[in-house]
Design a protein around this nucleic acid. Structure first.
Lengths: 204, 204, 204, 204
DNA sequence: CATGAATGAGCTTTCATTCAT
DNA sequence: GATGAATGAAAGCTCATTCAT
């Protein structure tokens, strides 16, 4: 029994190492640079070993994608829970969740890239319906609907609004991540200013 | 003399062909798929020939980048000129230029990708100061300053505001380009709604 | 004791499964496609398990070869027995055994390929003397000798004749198996015509 | 001009070397052993170089196949011509062409294997209609028809007969090539005996 | 008895690039 | 001005096999 447990753990450890390495390569060099060989080099195993744990390269990336999805959704959901615990209204909840979106991206640039920037067509087999981005979208849409009912924001098509909010958040995040413009100063300020401005535009 | 002239012209023609081919490959298959061999195949010259006109692959991409920059800036500037010809105030000018930004991205996805999405680190040698994005940024910043003076928008740090506007525009454009979410309906509606909302948030 | 018996039986079962899987891969995809991994996958055991029952890949193939040999010889012998039970003369016996040869090949293409087409040099360690092909050859030779004595066929070197008959049968079988020429029509007709013609040539 | 010629020749020389190497590997080790690397090693070029001359492995094998086809047909045709020059009747022509068939196989074992033993499905793109085997078959069929008309052989379906003759020849050749049975003695004797016997069976 | 772990060697193929001509 | 020749490096992947447990 112990034996089995140890084995399983070891198994998982290498699996972990593999996707950690993939994640790091992804972060530092982009998708094109994630190669089985480089992963193998990084974890100091032979390339063949990776094929023990993943059936091919796509499977590695898919795992990364799924993991990112889960973390992303968890981060959003957690902020929602906190907001509700604090008794925030729908509009303020939307704002704090928006903040959580951007924070997630900044804290997990590699995941954010995988999820929303790199166009991983090859891995599209991951069901969009189950994906964090889809669920996150629904969460956003739901929040907007409630905010409308509460009268915090203007009436309108919540679907359209959700796409609009998402655009703003995505732009904010991806510029922060990939374009450290020389004039970049206070990122925090930019984040709150942008979110505030946008939601002010939505307020009645 | 004539000879030389003809040669030069031919030279330029091939240069043209090369970057056109690169652009098309970029558009249709993504950066990773742009290879010297594929460019050569497409223009029906040998790979070696490309090295007559460009010292290496990076140089080809850089040229594309410069070209994209120029077109991008031109598109924005043109809209500014039209706005001024029409006697628009600063706020409305900003809005129509914002529209131009997104339209450029949609009309020139390959350039937009090269300029703002693909992280072409290798080509970072292109001076940012001269880049279209930088000039576009200044243009935006200037517009915001004037709008403040005109009283159309709230007072504040125009630099911060410019980054904020840019974020919104970039998010809008890149989501439109790379994430045709299944729920995508009316893109035009999304564009105008987002821009309007954001600038309403900036208005006093 | 029971334990051992059970184990042995299980052992044999897996041995069986292994060579069955190998045979099926051989048949469906050719020798090159028989890999230890694929066999393992097919029987749903780990590749390592195979090495419990066979020392290496060659051993698996050799087993297949031996099995094929046995079946082949059995098929021929059975037809001989039937012929004698029916009181056929030597010439007619030869003809019906020839038919059995071709039928065996068509009914067991994978074995026929292993035995007579694939050139399994690596497995040449199987003693030819014990092989079905050798025994089959002797059977053929013996039949020819008797037929000569009976006066059904011309006098001559029965060894040479046996090789000759074998050639004809092998050509017939292997063309039928591996070259379904578009003009292929009635295989049965071809078989009987060829055998009849050849033995008419041998008749006095 | 000289320059160009030399280049072309060199070009062809390497092409030659490549397919010679492939041919030799084919002969000595079988199709599975023909690898781009091994070819490259044998001709002492880098594997990449081969891709200058052939677009992929299949193209190399296809060239071999085409070449074999051509040589095969040429060998048969030549014997036909000789027979006609010598004024042979149709039956004797068939017999000498049969001999040529077997001689070709023995003289060019690698080609014979490629053409008629290895089942090169991947290369089936070579049109069967144009193939040497098909043309050779037609030649055989035609000869049989004439022989019937001349009264040298029995009346019958010349198509069936051609398949039958082909079977006999193929069996003879492939046994000679791939099964040097220990009892092998006089191959020449076997060849003529088998051909004679078969055609005696066909004679009226 | 059975297997998970691991590997070195090999596979076909594409890449950017250089060099001589 | 243009190219054919050539390559080293790297890609994703499969193979038979060994070893410790």
């Amino acid at each position: 029994m112990k034996h089995i447990k140890r084995r399983e753990r070891e198994s998982s450890e290498i699996r972990r190492k593999i996707i950690e390495a993939a994640r790091s390569l992804f972060l530092n060099q982009g998708y094109a640079e994630v190669s089985m060989r480089k992963i193998a080099d990084q974890i100091e195993y032979s390339p063949t070993t990776i094929y023990h744990y993943f059936s091919n390269k796509e499977a590695v990336v898919r795992e990364l994608l799924l993991e990112g999805n889960a973390l992303f959704l968890k981060a959003l959901q957690q902020r929602v829970d906190e907001a509700q615990a604090a008794g925030l209204n729908a509009l303020d909840t939307l704002k704090t969740v928006s903040d959580a979106y951007v924070r997630f991206g900044m804290a997990n640039p590699e995941y954010y890239n995988i999820l929303f920037i790199s166009n991983l067509e090859s891995v599209s087999s991951v069901s969009l319906i189950d994906s964090g981005s889809f669920k996150g979208f629904e969460l956003l849409e739901g929040g907007l609907k409630v905010a409308m009912e509460e009268g915090g924001i203007i009436q309108g098509d919540e679907h359209l609004m959700a796409r609009s909010v998402w655009s703003m958040l995505h732009g904010l995040t991806s510029l922060l991540l990939n374009f450290e413009l020389p004039m970049a100063k206070a990122n925090n300020e930019l984040i709150s200013f942008t979110i505030d401005t946008f939601f002010r535009g939505l307020s009645r």
